[in-house]
Amino acid sequence: MNEKIKTPISGFAMLGFAVLCLAGTAFSFTQGIIPLGILLFFVAIISFMGIIIINPNESRVLTFFGTYVGTVKENGLFFVNPLFKKQSVSLRARNLNGQSLKVNDKMGNPIEIAAVIVWQVNDTAKATFSVDNYTQYVNIQSEAAVRHLAGSCPYDNLEDENATLTLRDGADKVNEMLENELNERLAPAGITVLEARISHLAYAPEIAGAMLQRQQATAVVAARKQIVEGAVGMVQMALEKLSEREIVHLDEERKAAMVSNLLVVLCAEKAVSPVLNAGTLYN
């Protein structure tokens, strides 16, 4: 069912008519014209029943004995058929702060993930008649979308080095995927997702410690690799400079000893203590 926009007549004239009927009711009772007074009273009540007020970013869905008539979105005071059922539907943007969910990522690791979603009703007819409770529908489908997203991507690329998209590093792309999936899931309810963002992402407590140690070990290995590469480059440069300037001539064994000493100095985590050799390399 698609939304039909309805523009009813202004309600100010009917409001004035209803007030006049009430005044006529009072006058009729004072003059003893009881039947006329009762008639005017019922007319005034019926007139008031047809008056509706539409505030900014609000709407009224109108039905007549189970038949959808239309939706009033224009702001102001209006008059509609008093027999219409008038259901209020807010058009304001709403925030959904999803709870933290424990799910498995693509690699099977348990993680905790939560999302913040900004949504609003776009089609009042679908929101009212296509689903039982559109607010609950948004909550359930949002949780399902977050779970599906978490299972589609690894947390990071520690286990899947070929992963081009991870939950931790692919923030913008991951948020875009979540927003697109939510719009697809919520379209039958006439809901539009304005923004979707991952608000919480972490390993589950039972593996958080082990994963932290693994990340630290990976960082140490990477740092050591960079240090060694830099040290080898410095040793090579030192040997080339010594040979180029003919400061000292070293045979292969002395070069090996010098390389060993330089690598110890450059790769050590602590300051080294020099050892003076009073003899020769061979004695």
Rank of each mutant, 00 (worst) to 15 (best):
L101T: 05
L96Q: 10
N109L: 06
S90K: 04
L77E: 00
G98C: 09
V89K: 11
K85E: 01
N109P: 08
S100R: 15
I111P: 09
S100Q: 14
L83N: 10
N81V: 07
F78G: 00
V103F: 06
N109E: 05
G70C: 11
E112T: 04
V72S: 04
F78Y: 14
F84D: 04
V103C: 08
F79I: 06
P82K: 08
S88Y: 05
V69T: 11
Q87S: 12
F84C: 07
L91G: 15
L91I: 05
T71K: 02
L96K: 11
P110E: 06
R92H: 11
G76L: 07
K85D: 01
L96C: 06
N75I: 10
N109T: 13
K102W: 10
N104I: 00
K73Y: 12
P82M: 07
N81K: 14
L83T: 13
S88R: 15
K102M: 13
G108Y: 07
I113L: 08
M107R: 06
S100K: 15
N104F: 02
F78D: 00
P82G: 11
N95G: 08
A93V: 08
V69I: 15
N109V: 13
N75G: 04
K102T: 15
V80Q: 03
L91Y: 03
I111N: 09
E112H: 01
V72G: 01
M107G: 02
G70S: 12
R92K: 15
V80P: 00
L96V: 09
F84Y: 15
E74D: 13
K85Y: 08
V69A: 13
F78W: 14
S100P: 04
Q87D: 08
L101K: 05
S100T: 15
N97C: 09
I111Q: 14
K86R: 14
A93C: 06
V80L: 12
N104M: 08
T71Q: 09
